[in-house]
Amino acid sequence: MKIYIPNSAFLGNIDPFLRGFDPSDPGTLEITANEKWIAVHPAVLSMITALGLTVKPENISCRKLEARSRHYLVRMGLFRTLGISSDISIMEHEPAGRFIPITRIRTSEELSNFKNEMIPLLHLEPEQSRTIGYIVSELAWNVLEHSGSEHGAVLCAQYYKKSNSIRIGIADTGIGIRASINNSYSAETDLEALRLALKPGITGTTRREGGTEQNAGAGLFFIKSIAGINRDFFVIYSGDALYKLLKSPAARPRLHADPFDDRHSRAEGLPRWSGTVVGADITLDQTAGFSALLDAIRVTYRDAVRERLKARYRKPRFI
């Protein structure tokens, strides 16, 4: 496998980075990077780490990084997590900033520890901390319960002062959305599977309305809704498909049960990611009150369930 870290890859411009990923030869990983500058979304670091964890450390090669910002990869824990050495030294007095370094979560206990120890590193207000904790928890549980990933979830996050936003990325190398959804549905493409997974009340664990006793199929819909209401980016990539919720120009964006009704872009035929990647941006100074968000979700969710039930009604035949 080969992955190139560009000078810039955030959710708005992540597509070229994804298209440049080469998943062939899964027994090796070659990491290269832009020579001048590296500024990437945490989702990119989570992806690289998740890939690296599937390869023996001796089969990972990382070309010498020249970019001035290369120390960022060290601070985020890329080389430590992959068990490979780097020749990059960082000064002790360099500011740590507000970030959550690359972290692996394989059990619910690890998730609880993460929640208690890592999220405070972002130094957020209680309301903001609640929103970020909510997102991390739901995404990590998705991995733990549905991905079948041997290596668990890989996630990291970064606070950006200029935009006053938190960017979160989580990746796994499990079965992917399509295989998971198709335990109960029959999505013919990865993109169709993404569309189903983002609808409220659709879960791979059952076709029954209301889900199972343990799963409702609402987690991704909630997270997309948080990003949507806040007019932030949300990206999900699995198999060869990418769905990207775009920033809404509307002051009060509407929530939609069908993600294709949201302002979005989508792509198919990308290099195959065996697993799932989710990236989200949460701009803090426009974070809608969590309570107001829940009101909007409730209405959209209820209407979606009603629509599905209505679609099953038998129709009268007029002769």
Binding site: G201, E209, A218, F290, L294, R298, Y301, R302, R306
Partner: peptide, 19 residues
């Protein structure tokens, strides 16, 4: 608290809608 009430409201509502 209010957010917890609302989440309980969402779950009880969609479960009853779907029964």
């Amino acid at each position: 608290n209010e957010p917890v009430r609302k989440i309980i409201g969402i779950v009880t509502e969609y479960m009853q809608e779907g029964l």
